[in-house]
């Protein structure tokens, strides 16, 4: 199945992209996806990563569904 990953700020710089469509296996959790992304984009390794699933903060053991949008980012720094 295919999902969309989004990157912002430091993770966009580290990944060298702001958006990537990637194929993952059924039953993949957010934690497993982030491990895969750390392998695919080695620049992410040095960052503590947060994420959102379909525009909401989610637990790392949440299973990702086909067509989901997963955003990967560092601790927010607005204000």
């Amino acid at each position: 199945m295919q999902i969309t990953t989004l990157f912002f700020g430091a993770t966009a710089d580290a990944a060298g992209t702001r958006e990537a469509k990637i194929a993952i296996n059924d039953g993949t959790t957010v934690r497993e996806l982030i491990e895969k992304l750390r392998t695919d984009y080695t620049g992410l390794a040095t960052h503590k990563l947060l994420f959102a699933l379909n525009e909401e903060y989610a637990e790392t053991d949440t299973i990702i569904k086909d067509g989901d949008e997963v955003a990967i980012f560092t601790a927010v720094s607005g204000g």
């Binding site: 912002f8 700020g9 903060y57 980012f73 927010v76 720094s77 607005g78 204000g79």
Partner: peptide
């Protein structure tokens, strides 16, 4: 509100 915004709203500053 400002304290929470700085912790939860997905905005980043360069």
């Amino acid at each position: 509100l400002i304290k929470e915004l700085k912790h939860t709203v997905p905005i980043w500053k360069k």
